[in-house]
Design a binder for these strands. Structure first.
Length: 524
RNA sequence: GGUCCGGUAGCUCAGCUGGAUAGAGCAUCAGCCUUCUAAGCUGAGGGUCAUUGGUUCGAAUCCAAUCCGGAUCACCA
């Protein structure tokens, strides 16, 4: 190893390690050192402040499967960064204004007859989402009617009365017309009630929530400053642009001719606000890869404006979740609703648990908690075990497996270890070195890798590193556990050693799963 | 068309800062419950790593070209 350090990297060093004739005493020392380290795996504070922005819902429709991947990813990345010694703030920007929410508002005025989520017993975000769908149905109908009356399609799309009414409403909103503002406030509050339920259920939380209705005004200030610095240029019609052709991109508009700000401008304003409020060193945006171009532009503009933390804007770009039939399309009704999916997973967990009948003595609340732990665990693990950058395929028909490379597999391993430890209380005590079996060494080596997995996950902002590692640890332990008894070990020394391995494995599993936002049950 | 991303087993995915026989899970097949929870364990079959060329002692990994798939290039967000 000393002669050829370059020849032994990564997994090869582990393979080599297992085959080397290392004294048993060394294995014991390694184990004791790890066991004594209470901060095992956790890194000392770097003092770095990082903000992770994720979720970013629109208030016109409920959350779907794509949002789940986003939420789980953002939450887990934040946890991983924290475990690596960073001070982390979780933030969310709610897209609460714009033409999309006006569509829901118009449709509600037209069709609801005063109905509310309460009067219809509907979750608030679904309620508002239903009116967004109703808008589109009515809009389509009106366009068709106009076309049949002889109007060209493009003209019909512009002239449909419901669309004109919506555009009028947007203008009224920007003008602050009281009745429009009142309706807007009311409908958004319904949506937030619904979102809160979902966030609570999936374990998503934020240190700070920004609202676009507040931040979009920051855009104007940014544009003024940019114009003064000569970063932006103004056209004769008053619209403001930035020329990015020298950077291989296009000219981008940053302010409309009517003086209103566009999407990108709000983001620049928000980037500054985050920095001012939290003094962050690094800003991570968990946003889908369809916005790669947008984020590239954002970073470039921030650099040209010489914002203090422009260099540290990082887009954690994740791939879409697709169905076997292709992309999820709301128009075709192929969107997998987040609440439905979560409920389905929990109910699958209940079904499996009842079939196996291992926890018949559980009370109702205990059962409910277990189903939640298992159902959500399965879903989170499924969405986090693959590289975030890559798009992934989700098959709702086959649902999510509870066997193999899954959350419940890991949870099951944990529950079985806990079961042993309830029967065989473990105390730390000095012990004689005893010869180690290959499977025992493998567990020690795998435990040893936790630290580097944690560091790699943070470096790559990639929770799948943790998921793969934890699965591997659980599998290694299962093989060992089947082959060798812990309670009836050959000698007291063996028993002590194996109990220690069991304790450490369960601790690492628990810690690793926590980083993925997944709970582990004592029994299942 | 420009830019970016991807193509590894029937399916879903690891492996990609070059290095040992390309690995998991699911599915298929064959075994293991008087013994710490069988949501488990052991084993088998299954691969032209999209194609072609190049660099190298050595390529799934690096480079180039081609084919296929996706994203994006709005006074939408």
């Amino acid at each position: 190893l000393q002669d050829h350090p370059d020849l032994f990297t990564g997994f090869n060093i582990i393979k080599g390690f297992l085959n080397l004739d290392i004294a048993d005493q060394y294995w014991h020392e390694l184990l004791q050192a790890k066991y004594a380290d209470e901060q095992y795996g956790l890194q000392p504070s770097t003092g770095k402040k990082v903000m992770v922005e994720y979720s970013s819902p629109n208030t016109n429709k409920p959350l779907h499967l794509g949002h789940l991947r986003n939420n789980f990813l953002g939450w887990s990345v934040a946890a991983i960064l924290e475990a690596n010694g960073n001070k982390v703030f979780k933030s969310c920007i709610v897209n609460d204004r714009g033409i999309h929410i006006c569509k829901s508002m118009i449709a509600w005025q037209m069709f609801a007859d005063g109905a509310t989520p309460k009067s219809t017993q509907t979750k608030g975000d679904h309620f508002v989402g239903d009116y967004y769908v109703k808008f589109n149905d009515e809009y389509k109908r009106q366009v068709l009617e106009l076309k049949e009356g002889g109007m060209p399609e493009k003209e019909a799309e512009k002239q449909a009365p419901i669309m004109l009414a919506t555009q009028q409403m947007l203008q009224d909103w920007e003008a602050g017309k009281p009745e429009v503002m009142a309706l807007w406030t009311k409908m958004n509050s319904w949506v937030y009630e619904g979102f809160d339920i979902t966030y609570k259920k999936i374990g998503s939380d934020f240190d700070k929530t920004y609202y676009e209705s507040n931040t979009y005004l920051l855009g104007k200030k940014t544009v003024e400053e940019g114009l003064a610095k000569g970063v932006f240029e103004q056209e004769a019609d008053n619209s403001v642009w930035i020329d990015l052709t020298a950077d291989g991109l296009d000219r981008k508009i940053v302010q409309r001719k009517d003086g209103t700000s566009v999407y990108i401008t709000q983001d620049i304003g928000l980037a500054q606000q985050k920095y001012q409020e939290y003094g962050i060193d690094e800003s991570i945006y968990v946003i889908g890869d369809e916005q790669n171009y947008h984020m590239k532009v954002l970073k470039l503009i921030a650099e040209k404006l010489q914002l203090p933390n422009a260099q540290n804007i990082y887009h954690l770009s994740y791939g879409m979740v697709e169905l076997p039939s292709g992309k999820m399309k709301s128009r075709e009704g192929t969107v997998v609703d987040a609440d439905d999916l979560v409920d389905e997973m929990i109910s699958t967990a209940r079904q499996h648990t009842e079939e196996l009948g291992k926890v018949k003595d559980f009370t109702e609340p205990e059962l409910a908690e277990l189903y939640n732990t298992l159902g959500l665990g399965a879903m989170k693990f499924y969405l986090l075990r693959v590289d975030p950058k890559k798009k992934m395929i989700f098959n709702p028909e086959e649902s999510i497996d509870f066997h193999g490379f899954t959350g419940p597999f890991v949870q099951y391993t944990y529950a079985r270890i806990r079961s042993i430890l309830r029967k065989e209380p473990f105390e730390v005590k000095a012990m004689e070195a005893t010869p180690l079996l290959k499977l025992e060494k493998e567990i020690i080596v795998t435990l040893e890798q936790f630290e580097s997995a944690l560091q790699q996950a943070a470096k790559e902002l990639n929770p799948s590193v943790i998921a793969i590692y934890i699965f591997n640890l659980a599998r290694t332990f299962n093989s060992f556990y089947t082959a060798h008894s812990i309670g009836n070990a050959e000698t007291p020394e063996k028993k002590q050693l194996r109990l220690q391995l069991a304790v450490m494995t369960s601790n690492v599993i628990k810690k690793g799963m926590q980083l993925l936002g997944i709970q582990v049950p004592e029994r299942m």
